Amino acid sequence: MASNLDTTVTVFGGSGFLGRNVVRALCKRDYRVRVAVRRPELAGHLQPLGRVGQIHAVQANVRYPASVEAAMRDSQIAINLVGILAEGGGQSFDAVQMKGAETIAKAAAASGARMVHVSAIGADENSTSSYFRAKAEGEKAVQAALPSATIMRPSLLFGPEDEFTNRFAALARISPVLPLVGGGVNTVQPAYVADVADAVADAVDGKAKAGATYELGGPEVLTMREVMQIILKITQRDRMLAPLPFGLAKLQSYVLQFAPGPFTLTPDQVAMLRVDNVVSDAAKVAGLTFAGLGITPDSMEAVAPQYLWRFRASGQFQKKSA
């Protein structure tokens, strides 16, 4: 039986938050990993995740097909993790998440490779969010170019270095009031990044259905208010949660999109918060979920204390309140 060391997996966007975890999962399964990123000289932090020579970073930009084709040379599997949360310069949602996904799928098809494409729960051609519309168009482009591609749609990702729980914990450290856009009643199903990485690696192993779309949500459906309450409990911060109507949030976002760090809020992010971000009943019935892959996902309350302790007033040494 051939070893996974004979299989090269090209991971586009492998140096990002999810990418680091996917690379780690693939290395544990003995694959040869080619990380395709815009700045390979900045991907050195990935090397300790595998054995010497197991991980190789190459230059590729999804806006330039020739670089993508070069990154796929002699590779048996492509994984697309490339995505952006806010537009800037040449990095538009359409250029990266629609055209970029299509470019990778065409390169994979041309080289006879399999493909795992990571999209997002909420992807919808009719969404008021440009992010979600581009994600949906990206899925269509991938399916047209490579019908056998497996699509993974995770809900909001959490884990060390995320831009979700860490962002709100940082905001709670410096602000006495935390805004709840739309009242915080919209629901999410936070997924632990390592669980999503395992699902992607399972697809590489061939355990996922070809041409299927999986929806990956954690074990709990939470309102955004409940998410904030969990973060405040873990960081032991007493903060007011103030409802912020969507109309007012959208007006403020035109200014806050230029704000630094945790204060950033774009009009598109406001639009994203108008819809629930949970696994559909159809995906559950079809077995296209974590459960369908035999994965039992971890909850935010079980994992987040392992890294959010640094936002407590006295760090990990702070005594728990009675």
Rank of each mutant, 00 (worst) to 15 (best):
V285A: 14
F132S: 07
V33Q: 08
V116E: 05
D202I: 04
E163A: 10
M240W: 12
G44I: 01
F263K: 14
Q54K: 10
G217L: 13
S75P: 04
E161H: 11
S130K: 15
T235Y: 05
A57Q: 11
Q257N: 03
K284N: 08
A286Q: 14
R73I: 00
I151C: 03
E137C: 01
P219R: 10
S130F: 10
D195V: 00
Q189M: 09
A286Y: 05
P160H: 03
A304Y: 06
Q47A: 13
P245W: 08
D30Y: 14
K284Q: 14
S111T: 11
L171A: 09
R38Q: 09
R73Y: 02
Q189V: 04
L308S: 06
E125V: 03
K319H: 01
G182E: 12
P243F: 13
K207Q: 07
P267K: 10
E161R: 14
N126L: 08
A36V: 00
A304E: 04
G16L: 13
H56E: 15
A25E: 15
G183W: 12
A109Q: 13
E163I: 00
F168C: 05
V204P: 01
S253W: 05
V62S: 02
R20L: 03
L18G: 09
Q229G: 00
V279F: 14
P243Q: 08
G217Q: 15
L5F: 08
Q236M: 09
K209C: 01
V52G: 11
P160R: 11
G53E: 11
T213I: 11
Q97E: 15
A36N: 00
R34G: 02
R20H: 04
V22H: 13
A203N: 08
F93M: 01
L265V: 08
F258V: 00
A78D: 14
T223R: 15
G294A: 10
V177H: 09
